[in-house]
Structure formats: C-alpha cells, structure tokens
Amino acid sequence: MGGRGRSADLIIDLNADLGEGVGDDEAMLDVVSSANVACGFHAGTPAELVATCRAAAAAGVRIGAQVSYPDRSGFGRRFMDIAPDDLTADVLYQIGALEGIARAVGAEVAYVKPHGALYNSIVEHERQADAVVAAIVELGGSLPLMGLPGSVSLRRAERAGLAVITEAFADRGYRPDGTLVPRTEPGAVLTDSAAIARRVVGLVIDGTVAAVDGSDIAVDAESICLHGDTPGAVEHARAVREALGESGVVVAARR
C-alpha cells in the first residue's frame, strides 16, 4: 500500500475490540465498521456478547470473533504454552459460540481476530499459528483471519486457502521490524488523539508508519485497530474517523 497517494477512492476498515465489559462500546460502534467481539475466554459474559452482537447488527457493523487464550484473570495478555490440539479446540469453541449468538440476533460472524497474547504469539509461533488456522479450516474455511502483515499466522492461513485481512494499529508503537512494541516497554501505547489521527491518515494514504526509533516502515493494512479499552479511546477513535473523512478516505468494511 506504500506510496499510493491521496485519493477519494481509498477505503479503510476501522475495527475495535468490543464486548469485553470495559470501555464505551456504544460510542465505538458509532465510529468503527468492524467489531471484534470477545468470545468469553479473556473477557465478556454471555449476556454482554448477546448485547454487543445485537448492537453491532443494529449499527450495521461487521462482527468478528475475538478469540484468545483461556485467561480471564490476565485479560488474555499472557502467553500460554497450550498444546496445538487443545488450542485448536479452544478456538473452535469460541468461534462456534459467537456464531450461535450472532445468528440469534440476525447477524453473522464475518472473520476471526485473535486477541492479545495469542495475536502476538502467532506472529512468529508456528505451532500455535497452525492451531488457529486449523480451527478455521475445520469450520469450513470461509472465515478470513485478521492479523499483522508478514506474520506466520497469515502466511499459514493463505497456504491453507483462507482469506486474510491485514491489520495495523492506530495507538500502538511499532518496532523497526514491523512488530508491535510490548506493552511492558516505553512507547507501546500512544495517548494523544491528534497525533494518533495524523498517524492513521499517513498510514492509510502513504502506507507507512513511524517506528519507535524514528524510522519509517511500510505497513500494508486493510483494517486499522482502535483499542476500546485504553484511556481516551472514544476521543481517539472520533479524531481518527474525522481526520480520515477530511482526507477523502471512506471508512467501510470489505464484506
């Protein structure tokens, strides 16, 4: 996507993690075009997931299954060395549960996005990446996998015949190699709404983002994640949406 130049024909998907029992989901649904709905393993009660899917459907927002490690106490942000067969079963269970909820409210699950430590693990962890891909394949292989460009998980998904959705992050720091700065390190999370908005516009139009060392890296993204659980999340999201509109970028999910 790098160097494409400014164009009114540019389309970008905005996604956010919802149904986690934190943040203002209602406000975020007014901004985003895709909702990564928690599946209960790291956050979210059945009632919260039903309400979130129903609200997303009413808002015309695409629903994705936000699968994770079974780690409610750590909010899914701790690596877990789970056997591949067990991880595949965990992912199958989560997607299946959310698909049932979505159907009950007249909607459908349109993609899969791993959450937190699982997302970061399968950037490089081959066995866990294969386990996640295997679950989607066993469900029929119709759901795209959302992930970091260049990750092992997306390469394995494409090899298995799955569609993929490349993703960038509005408010997360990047290393020079294109991976995310761990949340335990300085520069991991951006907090200024105006700076985040400028960054996303540059990312969408030019296909580049500044790494923590000041270098520019190429990022090919079809979707931008706006975290819903960080301080000022709604203000960040609204600033991004407004800045994209002013730059002639259309916010929409590619169905």
Score class of each variant (00 low, 15 high):
Met1Asn: 10
Gly2His: 14
Arg4Glu: 15
Gly5Lys: 12
Gly5Trp: 13
Asp9His: 11
Ile12Met: 11
Leu14Val: 12
Ala16Trp: 08
Asp17Trp: 06
Gly19Met: 05
Glu20Thr: 13
Gly21Trp: 07
Gly21Thr: 12
Val22Ser: 15
Val22Tyr: 12
Asp24Glu: 13
Asp24Met: 08
Glu26Tyr: 06
Ala27Pro: 09
Ala27Asn: 11
Ala27His: 08
Met28His: 12
Asp30Gln: 15
His42Asp: 12
Ala43Ser: 14
Thr45Gly: 06
Glu48Ala: 12
Leu49Ile: 14
Thr52Pro: 05
Thr52Val: 10
Cys53Thr: 09
Ala56Lys: 00
Ala57Val: 14
Ala57Arg: 15
Gly60Met: 03
Val61Cys: 04
Val61Ser: 03
Gly64Ile: 00
Gly64Glu: 03
Ala65Ile: 06
Ser68Lys: 07
Pro70Ser: 08
Arg72Phe: 12
Arg72Tyr: 12
Gly76Phe: 04
Met80Trp: 10
Asp81Asn: 15
Ala83Ser: 04
Pro84Leu: 07
Leu87Pro: 02
Thr88Phe: 04
Gln94Trp: 03
Gln94Ala: 05
Ile95Phe: 05
Ile95Trp: 01
Gly100Asp: 08
Ile101Ser: 04
Arg103Thr: 10
Ala104Met: 10
Ala107Asn: 09
Ala107Trp: 02
Ala110Thr: 11
Tyr111Ser: 08
Val112Arg: 00
His115Glu: 10
His115Gln: 05
Ala117Tyr: 01
Ala117Gln: 03
Tyr119Val: 04
Tyr119Trp: 11
Asn120Val: 03
Val123Lys: 06
Glu124Pro: 03
His125Gln: 10
His125Arg: 14
His125Pro: 02
Glu126Ser: 13
Ala129Leu: 07
Asp130Glu: 15
Ala135His: 01
Val137Ser: 03
Val137Arg: 13
Leu139Gly: 13
Leu139His: 07
Gly140Val: 07
Ser142Arg: 15
Leu143Thr: 10
Met146Tyr: 09
Met146Val: 14
Val152Pro: 04
Val152Glu: 13
Leu154Val: 13
Ala160Lys: 10
Gly161Arg: 03
Gly161Phe: 01
Val164Asn: 07
Val164Arg: 06
Val164Ser: 08
Glu167Val: 02
Ala168Asn: 02
Phe169Ser: 00
Phe169Ile: 07
Gly173Glu: 09
Pro176Arg: 01
Gly178His: 03
Val181Trp: 01
Pro182Trp: 00
Pro186Glu: 08
Gly187Asp: 07
Val189Tyr: 01
Leu190Ala: 15
Leu190Phe: 14
Thr191Asn: 13
Asp192Ile: 02
Ala197Arg: 00
Ala197His: 00
Arg199His: 08
Arg199Met: 05
Val201His: 02
Val204Ser: 04
Ile205Gln: 11
Ala211His: 11
Val212Ile: 15
Asp216Cys: 02
Val219Cys: 05
Ala221Met: 07
Glu222Ser: 13
Ile224Tyr: 11
Cys225Ile: 08
His227Asp: 10
Asp229His: 07
Thr230Trp: 02
Thr230Asn: 08
Pro231Cys: 02
Val234Trp: 00
Glu235Asn: 11
Ala237Lys: 00
Ala239Gly: 07
Val240Ala: 02
Arg241Trp: 10
Arg241Asn: 02
Gly245Asn: 10
Glu246Phe: 00
Glu246Trp: 00
Glu246Val: 07
Ser247Val: 11
Ala252Gly: 08
Ala252Leu: 12
Ala253Ser: 13
Arg255Lys: 09
Arg255Ile: 05
